[in-house]
Nucleic acid binder design. Structure first.
Length: 370
DNA sequence: CACACCAATGCAGCAGCTGT
DNA sequence: ACAGCTGCTGCATTGGTGTG
């Protein structure tokens, strides 16, 4: 299709009769066509082919507008000449007609005002802000998800026969999520059977905890958990020191820093539970609060097993300055990652828009040659 | 319906100590 | 001297849920 043809199509569209005072523009919205019109307003049926071309071009125009000004030339040059000409003609026409064009694109928003660059980045940042707004909404586990996940985990462990029992270089250990964001590990055992029997105890403790605590509460009392562990051990004819549990808070913070954050393992249940509460409360209140909680956890000295474990197993608490560097670096790299994602999404949207315009142009060309 | 997000599980690796 | 022990850490994976 030539540039002239594009102009012809656009001129024709101007003459499509409409009962709406704003002209043809509002009819172009697919979503509006599907919905019953607002009271007192009438819409006529859309002219499919013309509208499709206009919609595709408007979609492309906005996809290009999402790029920073300096990148737009490169974007345009990467297009096929016909597509570029069609878009430029469309934009010229848009510029000439001072009437605000509001060709709506499915899933898009009004085109009266182009979205500022980078729209996706702004959206990403809004998401960050919304995480901060969560301050007023206390965290609660999704009961359905937890129940389903528990079923899945059970199914998986049934399949594998030893879910929750992990092989270490020197032996076997049992690990289980006792309550959401809170893990308990047994000490290391020589055989997988021993570790499996400890896993059974941990599962029993989890069931006892679930039976006594409300599923929607994020506040778990340490005495309750400890009692559940003691009772579970007792039912298997064991002592708590046979299990020798250690506890870790593990809070998913991918929405804030792009990773999960865990506290150091502690043999003190209260300590680990406290870290869990701090991290969860921080996460619910947004980045600045989460940062404080994370810093606290990183600097905390925890109770460890009196074992001969070394290396990473005995990582030291960080000094304040080091903790701050660590935390801020994580946040910065998360922000950069979000920006990169936003750019990738813009490119993807552009590719789709170009494809759509190409298809419309090709179809129109075919019809003309018949 | 595709994609992003999230909870939970699974596992490799770390690195100094200990036993031979 | 060195292989093995130890259990904690960090990250990948899995699969369900939410959202546009």
């Amino acid at each position: 299709m030539s540039l002239q043809n594009v102009m012809i199509v656009m001129t024709k569209s101007d003459h499509i009769p409409t009962a709406h005072p704003a002209g043809w523009t509002e009819r172009c919205s697919l979503s509006q066509c599907r919905r019953p019109p607002p009271s007192g307003r009438t819409y006529v049926q859309p002219a499919p082919r013309t509208d499709r071309a206009l919609r595709a071009l408007e979609r492309l125009r906005r996809a290009v507008a999402e790029f920073p000004r300096e990148a737009r030339r490169e974007v345009l040059e990467a297009m096929a000449p016909t597509t570029r000409l069609a878009l430029l003609a469309f934009m010229e026409r848009l510029e000439r007609s001072k009437a605000p064009l509001t060709v709506a694109v499915p899933g898009g928003e009004s085109s009266q005002r182009p979205r500022p660059w980078p729209a996706r980045l702004a959206k990403a940042k809004a998401r960050l802000r919304s995480a901060e707004r969560e301050a007023h909404r206390p965290w609660r586990p999704r009961a359905a998800r937890i129940a389903r996940t528990a079923r899945t985990a059970t199914a998986r462990s049934d399949r594998q026969g030893q879910g929750g029992v992990y092989r270490k270089q020197g032996g076997w250990m049992a690990k289980l999520c006792l309550i959401p964001y809170f893990y308990v590990s047994s000490r290391c055992f020589q055989s997988p059977q021993q570790a499996a029997s400890m896993l059974k105890v941990l599962r029993r403790a989890r069931d006892l905890t679930a039976a006594t605590a409300t599923a929607t509460s994020s506040c778990y009392r340490s005495e309750l958990l400890k009692q559940a562990l003691v009772d579970a051990c007792c039912q298997e004819g064991l002592e708590l020191q046979d299990l020798a549990p250690s506890f870790t808070a593990y809070v998913d913070a991918k929405g804030i820093v792009g990773c999960a954050v865990s506290s150091r393992s502690s043999t003190c249940l209260e300590e680990a539970l406290d870290h869990r509460s701090l991290l969860l409360a921080g996460r619910a209140k947004g980045w600045s609060h989460f940062r404080e909680a994370w810093l606290h956890v990183l600097q905390a000295t925890v109770q460890r097993r009196p074992s001969r474990a070394w290396g990473r197993a005995r990582s030291k608490p960080l000094k304040k300055a080091h903790a701050e560097v660590f935390v801020d670096k994580a946040r910065r790299s998360f922000e950069l990652q979000m920006e990169a994602t936003a750019v990738a999404v813009c490119r993807k949207r552009l590719a789709r828009a170009v494809q759509k315009v190409d298809a419309v142009l090709k179809e129109s060309h075919k019809k003309r040659s018949l």
